[in-house]
Amino acid sequence: MKSILLSLAVGIVFGVGLLLSGMTQPAKVVNFLDVLGDWDPSLGFVMGGAIAVHFLAYRLVPRLAKPAWAERWALPTRRDIDIRLLVGAVLFGAGWGLGGYCPGPALTSVVAGASSTLIFTGSMLAGMWGFSVWEAARVAR
């Protein structure tokens, strides 16, 4: 229960950060990526602010023996750059540039009920689900 309430609180802070930063406005995202259009560099500041804080946390926190409220670390360890990583990033970048939403902002925005947000988010979740089905079938072969 403790972990559930914590996760909820951490999710709320993340969502408020997305809302303040402008990531939940696809026009701002598209205007950041479209460097030949009405360029809006704001989203560079989002990444800068987030990394400034989290970079420090990453220098300090993993020195602890274990996380405060969990038994062990569950952090990524892979460092290799493979074809799946790059193809995935190409697909993600294309969808982000086209729709103006990445996954977090899409989920935060869905309650506003705009039809374009609903279509994008539904399609995104279907894509994630479809990938899991494909991956499970591939591993089983």
Partner: peptide, 14 residues
């Protein structure tokens, strides 16, 4: 298309 690309791409690319 954008949603599918984001959904599949982020899972494939971790």
């Amino acid at each position: 298309v954008a949603g599918l690309f984001v959904g599949v791409g982020t899972r494939l690319g971790n």
